[in-house]
Amino acid sequence: MARLPADVYAELDRRLAPVDAALASRYPGDRDGRQPVHTVYVPADAFRAGLAGEWGAAARDALEAHPPLPFDESLRARVESKLDREPIEDLRIDFEDGYGVRSDSAEDAAARAAAAALRAEQAPPFVGLRVKSLEGATRHRAIRTLDVFLDAYGGLPPGFVVTLPKVSVAEQVAAMAVLCGFFERAHGLESGVLCFEAQIETPPAVLGVDGTATVARLIAAADGRLTGLHYGTYDYSASVGVAAAYQSMAHPAADHAKAVMQVAAAGTGVRLSDGSSNVLPVGDTAAVQAAWRLHAGLVRRSLERGFYQGWDLHPAQLPTRFAATYAFFREGAPAAWDRLTAYRERRASGVLDEPATARALAGFLRRGQDCGALDPDEYDRAILETV
C-alpha cells in the first residue's frame, strides 16, 4: 500500500515544474520535415538561372566520360533520375570565401542578380545565401548583402536560410538572431520566418576559453532561429594545425569537433551537416575514379555516424553523393522495417528495441523516402509518421 501523502507528489511537482519546462524548451525533439542530403555552394558571381540543371547535365556527362559507373548497376536508374529531376537539393549562393572581397557596388549588384535569378526559375527545394562573417572587418558587408538581396527578391524564397560563417562565440549568434528580427520588420516578413545556420570552422566554436562546449551555447543563444550546424572541414583543420595534406572529414580532429556538435545538438531540432571533400573528380579517368571512390567512402562514413548532410563543391560529386546515400538507405531499409514492425506488433525478434530505437528506425525510413532512396510506396508512411 502506498504510504506517501499527496502533498509529497505536489512538492516534487513544484520543485521540478521549472525543470520540465526548461527541458521541453531546450530539447523540443527533431525538426519536422525533410533534411537535404547535401548543400551545394556556388560563388555568387557564378550563380545564374538554370544552374541546377547544368550541374545535373554535367554530372551525367562525367558518368558517360569516365566509366565504369562509380556505383552498383542496380542504382543506375535511381541516380540518373535524380540527376535529371533534382540534381541539387540545397543551394547556397556564396558571398564569403568562394566569392571573396569585391567592391561594394559589385557585391550589391551580385546580390540583386542572385535574387533575380532565383525568381526567374523553379529553385531547388532549399536555397539560401552564405554571407560574410559578423567579425568586425566584414560585419557591415554581411548585413548589407542580405538587405540588398531581400529587397531585390521582395520577400523570402521557399526553403530559404542564411549561412553564417566563422562563428566563434554565442554573442555572434545572439546578434544574428536579433538581426533577423530587424530584417523581418524592415522587409515586411512574418515574425520568426527568417532562420540561419552556423558554420563550425573555428576552434573557439567547439571549446570555449572556460572549457565548456561553445556549440551548446550557440544553440541556446539563437532564440529558436538556428536550424543547422555545418562543419567547415578546411578552415577548422587549418586552425588546429593539421597539415594541408592530411586535412579531411575523416581526420581525428574533425571527428572530435563533430562529436561535440552532435551531442550539443541532440534533441534540439538543430540539424547537422558534415563538410566537404576538396579532392574533385576532374582530370583523366583514373583521377576521376579515384576521387569518386574517396567521396563515396566519405559520404558513407558520415551517414554511418549520424551526419545525413554534407557539402558538394563540383557537379561530378553528385553521382557519388546520391549513390552512396541511396545504397546506405536501401541496404538498411528491410532490416529497419522488420524491427519496426516487430516492435509495433510486440512480437519476438532477434533484437529487443525500445521506444527511442523505434523512433530512430522510423526516422531512418522517412529519410530514405525523403531523399529518393526509397519509393513512397515501399514502406507505409502513415506508420512511419506515427511512431
Rank of each mutant, 00 (worst) to 15 (best):
V260N: 03
A221C: 08
L226D: 00
D151L: 15
D7N: 12
L340H: 02
L352M: 10
G228C: 03
A65R: 12
L189F: 08
D104S: 04
S349K: 03
R15M: 06
H314R: 08
S239N: 05
G310M: 09
R185Y: 15
K82A: 15
G332V: 09
D20R: 15
K132H: 02
A265Y: 14
T268E: 07
L374W: 03
L4Q: 08
R119L: 11
I143P: 05
A59G: 11
Q122G: 11
A216W: 11
M261K: 01
L129R: 00
A362V: 02
A46P: 06
V351W: 12
A244F: 03
L272W: 14
A177I: 05
R144Y: 04
Q369R: 01
S302W: 00
F47N: 09
R367Q: 05
G283E: 04
R139N: 06
V263C: 05
H66G: 02
D284G: 04
D90T: 02
D380G: 07
D30K: 12
R339H: 13
L298D: 01
P87L: 06
L365W: 03
Q247G: 11
L294W: 02
P315N: 12
L226Y: 04
A58L: 12
Y231I: 04
A291T: 06
E121W: 02
V282G: 06
S133H: 05
A222G: 03
E171D: 10
G188N: 09
A213M: 08
L218N: 08
R130A: 11
H230F: 08
G192Y: 02
L313I: 09
A186D: 15
S103C: 08
P125D: 13
T138V: 13
F322I: 02
A57N: 04
A356F: 00
L384A: 09
E197V: 00
R217T: 01
R346V: 14
L129N: 04
D377F: 03
A65M: 07
G181Q: 10
T233E: 02
L384H: 01
Q289K: 12
L150C: 03
D30H: 09
G310S: 14
A175E: 01
R225F: 02
S248N: 10
N278T: 07
D90V: 13
F71N: 14
T212H: 10
I200M: 09
S302H: 14
S277C: 14
K82Y: 08
D223R: 14
G310K: 09
L280N: 00
W337N: 13
R359L: 08
E197W: 03
R344K: 11
G33C: 14
K132N: 01
F322S: 15
